[in-house]
Amino acid sequence: MVPTDLRYTRTHEWVRLGGDAATVGITGHAQDTLGDITFVELPKVGAPLTKGREAGVIESVKAASDLISPISGVVASVNAALESAPEAINKDPYGAGWLYTVKAADASEADGLMDAAAYEKFLESESE
């Protein structure tokens, strides 16, 4: 079950809207596929992000993949705790394992993302 209050990308990031800035993380499925996460390269606070473009890199023992920005805007804060404890992403991908927050340039961009039901369907289709 994926949280119903979030929006999802086909590259397995989630975004939580609301408040001043949107919060971004990777999904439970993504952390599961990557395995033990050993390192995250997060964007710098103040850096401009473009929807669909690279925002950072996430590394596990056997893989490294790009973090794709689900939404355009300026980075407001990053989860500094991940620097010393990246395993938080494995343990709690939708909570303590959040990656960064972004001041969205245009919150309506998120409308194009999947809701929980659509993402679950997408996961099913991917596993086939």
Binding site: D36, T38, F39, E59, V61, K62, P86, E87
Partner: peptide
């Protein structure tokens, strides 16, 4: 049969 068994690669990377 080896000097070490499967090694903890996560620990190595962290």
């Amino acid at each position: 049969s080896t000097p070490v068994g499967r090694l903890d690669e996560t620990k190595a990377a962290r």
